[in-house]
Each structure stands twice: as C-alpha cells, then as structure tokens.
C-alpha cells in the first residue's frame, strides 16, 4: 500500500442536512483516472484552494478530482479553453496519468441522475462539498472522493 500524501485530513461526517433527504447513491469500484503535474503535485491531491468548481467553500474538506474514464480526465485537464483543438507534446509529457484503485467500493451521491439534485434540495447543494458526491455532466464524471472512514487510503500502481 502506497502512503498517500495530501490525505483529506480530519474530515467531517456528511452533513446532517442529508438526513432530511434521500440522495441517490452510486457505488463505484474504480479505477479512477487522474492527470497531474509530474513536477509539483502528487497523483493524489485533495485541494482546498477554492479555485475549482466543486471545492468546499467552507474549507470543510479537500476535494480530489478524478474520472472513471481516461477521456474525461483528459478533457477536464486540457480543455478549459473553448475551441482549443491542440495540446503540445511538452504539456503532455509534463502530465502523467495516475490510475487510482480503491481498496473497496466507494459510495457517492449522484447529483446527475434524474432528480438527483432535487432530492438534495437547494439547501444541501450549498453543503454538497461536505458530502461525498459524484457529478455527471455532459457524459463526464467528476468525483469528490470522501472515503467511508476519516483517513481514507488508495493504492497507487504508478503511472500509465
């Protein structure tokens, strides 16, 4: 088992607001793909920068962005710009792909299934960063990984 840096830390339990709702739960076994900066970053990175779309606004937890599909990871990493149709070779070289395996299935709240967001209600959406979520938009998945226990762990087979 590889020691995982940037662990989520002392995570809170899922928000109590969820008790009032019946979220749609999806269970995924992975693996998950994550593209990362070879020089500066670990393949496992739970960000708290607030720079990313689903970062926890309350700094309640770190968020790991990964995708069950390699294509999804590619788009999420390189296609921030609209209409961009080329990626340079140095840019690709600088960004390995990590294939992340989990040691057990992970449970996510599916916000993208039909009615998924409605089930949570508008109040809970604001707190979604404190809950395990999985979002599927335009055919891609965005995973916020929060393990069942508070420390969490992943095995890393290396880069592909």
């Amino acid at each position: 088992m590889t020691d995982v840096r940037n662990k989520p830390g002392d995570l809170p339990l899922p928000t109590q607001a969820l008790n009032r709702h019946k979220p749609i739960i999806a269970e995924l076994t992975g693996p998950f793909f994550r593209i990362y900066r070879a020089v500066q970053k670990s393949p496992i990175f739970f960000g708290k920068t607030l720079d990313y779309r689903f970062d926890s606004v309350a700094w309640a937890c770190g968020v790991l962005y990964a995708s069950p599909q390699l294509e999804g990871a590619f788009v999420e990493t390189f296609m921030q710009e609209l209409g961009r149709t080329s990626v340079s070779i140095p840019e690709l070289r600088d960004r390995p792909v990590a294939k992340i395996y989990t040691n057990r299935p992970l449970r996510f709240i599916d916000l993208c299934a039909k009615g998924g967001q409605m089930r949570l209600g508008p109040d809970s959406m604001g707190e979604s960063a404190q809950a395990p979520t999985l979002l599927r938009r335009r055919g891609r998945m965005h995973c916020e990984y929060i393990p069942h226990n508070r420390t969490g762990s992943c095995s890393l087979p290396g880069t592909i």
Partner: peptide, 10 residues
C-alpha cells in the same frame, strides 16, 4: 490562470 492545465471539474 491558476487552474490552467490542472485536473479539475470543467
């Protein structure tokens, strides 16, 4: 700019 080329939700 800070998130350019980083894996994050689009």
């Amino acid at each position: 700019a800070r998130t350019l080329g980083e894996h994050g939700a689009a």
